[in-house]
Simulated scan of single mutants.
Amino acid sequence: MKKLITALTLALALAASHTALAHESPARHGGIVKSAGDLSFELVNKDGKTAIYVDDHGKGLAMAGGSGTLTVLKGAEKTVATLSAGGANTLVAKDGIRLEAGAKVVASIVLPDKTTVSVRFAVK
């Protein structure tokens, strides 16, 4: 009986984890993708510029009127940058931000409808 309960628990845990991962879309811009709610956020650091691309079920979510902050934690160092609307579905960091391996990044994003979402990234 214990083996049956263990097998059922394991099967339910695997099914739940598969469902949770289903919302994360692949990286389209070479960044790190994380999901929060029904939205996907891709953190990209290219050519010295940091941006977050926001998608809703695979389609870009217009970020005009959106804003936020980006906090980078690397050891005892803490750097905070302001995010503002960039192109169609992006938020761009105003201050020069460095994303190095091992850094933890927390994005606090205010969507155009004034809903706030927090997303955490780990830079590898």
Rank of each mutant, 00 (worst) to 15 (best):
P112V: 13
L91D: 04
T9H: 02
N89T: 12
T50F: 01
M63T: 04
L12G: 11
V117F: 00
G66D: 06
K34R: 15
L12V: 15
A16N: 08
G66F: 12
A27E: 03
V54W: 00
L61V: 07
G102T: 07
Y53Q: 02
P26D: 11
S40L: 12
T71Q: 04
S25H: 09
K74Q: 00
P26Q: 10
R120N: 15
G31Q: 05
K104E: 04
L8Y: 05
K49E: 10
A16V: 14
K114Y: 09
A81H: 05
V80D: 01
S118K: 14
A103S: 15
L70M: 07
I109S: 08
G96S: 11
V80F: 01
A93D: 04
L4S: 12
L70S: 00
A76E: 01
A103H: 02
A20N: 11
D55N: 11
A13R: 11
K124A: 14
L99E: 05
P26C: 00
A13M: 15
V117R: 08
A15H: 05
G68A: 13
I97W: 00
E24N: 13
M1S: 14
A64Y: 14
V92P: 00
G48N: 08
A64T: 15
A51D: 07
A101P: 08
S84I: 05
K78T: 02
V72R: 02
V92C: 01
I109L: 05
L14I: 15
G102L: 10
A62Y: 13
L91W: 02
T19L: 14
T71E: 06
G68V: 13
G31S: 07
A15P: 06
D113Q: 14
I5D: 09
K46V: 09
S17R: 09
A11K: 10
T79A: 09
K124H: 06
S67G: 13
E24S: 12
L61Q: 13
I5P: 01
V105T: 07
M63Q: 11
G60V: 08
S25F: 01
V92R: 09
L111S: 07
L21S: 11
S118L: 14
A122C: 04
S84T: 14
K124T: 11
T71L: 04
T79G: 03
A27S: 10
G65L: 12
G86V: 06
A88I: 13
K49G: 08
V80Y: 04
H57T: 14
G65M: 11
I52A: 03
A85M: 09
T50P: 02
L39M: 08
T82G: 07
A64C: 10
D56F: 02
M63C: 04
S84N: 12
S118A: 14
H29E: 08
V123N: 02
A51F: 02
D56L: 06
G37Q: 09
G96Y: 01
G66R: 15
K34Y: 00
